[in-house]
Design a protein around this nucleic acid. Structure first.
Lengths: 198, 198
DNA sequence: CGCGACGTTGATTTGCCTCAACGATTGTGG
DNA sequence: CCACAATCGTTGAGGCAAATCAACGTCGCG
């Protein structure tokens, strides 16, 4: 996929959410940057300062924490087409990153820096509405996820997961899904086994 | 606390986050509504449509889900002075509520409806920046909480809790704290016991 | 005073993790 | 093209942390 097409994907997505004028969409162009990443490539690693967020045109990324004390990974989220991803803890709270953002597949991303985004908000206020709206929905989904982690069994969370991320089972490793669900890979294996019998 | 003082509390808070002009602050006044609630009063109950969010001037509220299947409560969050609260799942996703929002203490709240807020965004764009900023920070905190629920023991989450909500232990019941932490009340009791010995 | 709600403690159970072993699959270098 | 290692998923056995169940003391309130 070449650059104009990748960028067009972003524009189409933006227009789905908020109606932008053609001039606004033209004006925003210089602020965005196309990035191509190979499978296994890291967009963010622990210790770095995070100034960008990334729109996924194509591909799949995993955002996770690696706990050095017990050598274990905790997957915060997966990102697929049309998601914005970053280490939002570091990005929004101005902390240095404690997360990995890794491409689990070859990916095409479009990045924008925090400074540029703020400039863009002033130049085209519709972008502030767009990102506010994005945040509102993401915030609500996080609340649902927190409730689910408190309330639901591993099996129920797995069912919710395959419902929320259809087709992602083929795209990421089982142990990564397990680390998203907050269970051991062996437990996920057994849950799958149980469900298949029903 | 009388109404002008309650409203002044909101204005002072707003100015801490974003610099508003005196005219802007004057313009927003008609959109907000002061609410007083007694201890035990419900601001939101399951089944209702949620059109408002609430700024806490004084008091304490608890947002929780009551699961009828096993008659158990799951506390999503506590709100104290200067927090905005609501059932944000229902509010942002236009669903009917599945949560209770209950005042655990006599409280003074200031509400604004979604429609009024959108009108206010158009009239005073600084409000959109303010709420975007609020959402960014809340979003980042939610990510931290999700990681913590996956990663940390009940004891660690309790320590984080009393650090994040100082003095709240005196304000809410133990079983409510336990249901926030995602553990049984008995377990919280034992954790406290263990920590006291150290 | 008596009831109900709450917190604590002890005994028991259980769901899930840990640890270990074994195939299956994939990629690599000879 | 074939060994070989590395990675991953699965299965079984055992252990443990936390939930459950039950009993009791305390407190606040009608």
């Amino acid at each position: 996929m070449n650059d104009p097409i990748a960028f067009a994907t972003l524009l189409i997505h933006l227009n789905k959410e908020i109606s932008f004028s053609p001039e606004d969409l033209e004006k925003c162009k210089p602020f965005f940057k196309i990035i191509r990443a190979r499978q296994g490539e890291f967009i963010i690693k622990p210790g770095v300062n995070v100034h960008e967020q990334y729109f996924i045109v194509e591909g799949c990324v995993r955002v996770y924490h690696h706990d050095l004390e017990n050598d274990r990974e905790y997957t915060l989220l997966f990102g697929i087409e049309e998601w914005w991803i970053s280490d939002f803890i570091a990005y929004h709270l101005d902390l240095s990153s404690r997360l990995y953002v890794e491409c689990t597949h070859p990916s095409t991303l479009i990045s924008i820096s925090k400074n540029d985004l703020h400039a863009l908000y002033k130049m085209v206020p519709a972008f502030e509405s767009y990102f506010r709206r994005k945040l509102e929905r993401a915030f609500a989904f996080n609340h649902q996820r927190i409730l689910s982690l408190q309330k639901d069994s591993g099996e129920q969370r797995y069912l919710d997961f395959i419902h929320q991320y259809p087709n992602i089972e083929q795209r990421v490793k089982n142990y990564q899904i397990a680390s998203y669900l907050g269970i051991a890979p062996e437990s996920l294996s057994r849950i799958r086994n149980q469900l298949a019998k029903k």
